[in-house]
Structure formats: structure tokens, C-alpha cells
Simulated scan of single mutants.
Amino acid sequence: MEEMRTLLAGCLRESANGYVVDALIENYPNISELMSASEKEISSVKGIGVVKAKQLSAILEFARKVYAPDKNKRIIVRSPKDVYDLVRADMEFLQVEHFDVIGLSTKNHVIFKENISIGSLNASIVHPREAFKGLIRRSCAACILVHNHPSSDASPSEEDILLTQKLVECGKLIGIEVLDHIIVGADGGGYISLKEQGRM
């Protein structure tokens, strides 16, 4: 919390213990909520005018782009860390669960990344038909499953493990290998690879 206070104070040229920073933290008690806030929402906070809202929104957008991978660079997945680096900017600050599929070529080049489900605070509903539709259409050789936990705990639930096993079996029938399932934790919670954990 103190680190967040210091960062906000530096960005806005305000006192770390001043009412402006207090008001922001009261409205957005963690980085995840602040990163998801729009400029309009920020400007409605007491003590934050239009100028400061634009300034803070620009800084947050810059932070998102720094995390985001270069879209012009051809991406090859060699490890779970490569997947985490690819999706971190999109997933780390989400408030509800998003389930994405990453389609790969025979040499593990990323062909596409697609969101197939948006759920609640602690669950997303995923149907195999939706998971594999884009992969079949784009003739992918393999895929990686990715979803976020809105909490900082990336540990897989029993439902996560059962869903992964179901999708792995579907992939075998279709001929598209499910290489891994990566779970991303919020607010710097890191990631967990079910493949590395031996759970798929």
C-alpha cells in the first residue's frame, strides 16, 4: 500500500499522505482496480480534476503498453514464461476471469490469441466447441490454454484441472495438442503452469 501511495504521489506531484492520494486509494485500493479504471471514472474522484485524470490515465496506458509484447515481432513459445510474457499485460489486472486460447504452428509460432470466455470473479465457463473452433479454422497444430485468477493466487482449482483434462482429451480426438494451461495471478501474483506441475 505504501508503495502504491508513493507511486501515485510521484505521478500526480501530490503528497503521499495528502487527500488526493487518500481519495484515489479509497476508490481504488489495489493496482488491479486502478489499472481497470477509465479516465472518466478517475476524474470523478474527489480532488482529481480533468487534467490530473488525463495525466494518470496516460501513465496507466503507458504501463500497459510497456508490458505488452511487440505485435510486429513473430513470437515463438519455448516455455511457460514466454506465454506469461505474452498475456501478462492483458490479464494481470482483470477483475473477472477471462479464458484465452493461443494457437500455435508446428514450430510453436503464435498464430493467434483469442478470448473465448469471460466469467465471474472466480469462474469462467468454457465449452470445448468454442475452445477449438478458432484453432480448427486456422489449422493450428497445437494450443496453449490461458486464464487469469482475479486474486493474486494463481493456484489451480479442482475445476481448472478437470477442465484442462477434458480439453486435452478433446484435442487428442481432433488432432490439436494442448501443450499447457497457464494460470495468471492478479497484481503481480505470477503464473502457474499445469504442465510443469504434472497436472495434465
Rank of each mutant, 00 (worst) to 15 (best):
I144R: 03
G185Q: 10
S155G: 07
S193R: 03
N30W: 04
K52D: 13
Q55F: 07
L56R: 04
D22K: 10
A58M: 09
L8S: 05
I192W: 01
D100H: 13
D85C: 05
S43C: 06
V96H: 08
N17C: 05
L24T: 05
G188C: 13
E130M: 12
R78L: 11
L135M: 05
D153K: 13
Y67N: 05
K65C: 01
V168I: 12
Y191L: 02
L163D: 06
T164C: 15
I31H: 02
I102G: 03
R13T: 05
H127P: 00
G103S: 08
I136A: 04
A16V: 11
L94W: 00
R64T: 01
D153S: 15
I111V: 15
P69Y: 06
K73G: 02
A141V: 00
S124R: 01
H127I: 14
E61W: 01
S32L: 03
A89G: 13
G49V: 07
G188P: 10
E130V: 02
R88T: 01
P150N: 05
H147F: 09
P128L: 13
E97K: 10
G171A: 05
P156T: 08
S117W: 12
R74C: 09
N72H: 15
L179F: 06
A37H: 04
L12E: 01
K54N: 14
S44M: 11
L94G: 00
I42F: 06
A63T: 07
S43K: 09
A154G: 10
L86I: 12
V51Y: 14
E130F: 13
G134Q: 05
K46P: 00
G175Q: 08
T6F: 13
Q165P: 00
S120A: 14
G190A: 09
L163K: 12
Q95A: 08
G134C: 07
E114G: 00
R5D: 09
G103D: 08
S151G: 09
R64M: 01
E61K: 14
G185A: 13
G198Y: 11
V20N: 03
P156I: 10
Y67Q: 13
E159D: 15
C170W: 14
R78S: 15
Y84A: 11
S105N: 03
S151R: 04
I102P: 01
A9D: 05
G198C: 10
F62V: 09
D100Y: 15
L24G: 03
E130I: 02
I136E: 14
E39P: 00
R137G: 00
L162Y: 11
P156E: 08
M4S: 07
K54F: 06
K166A: 11
I183N: 04
S157G: 02
L94F: 00
F99S: 12
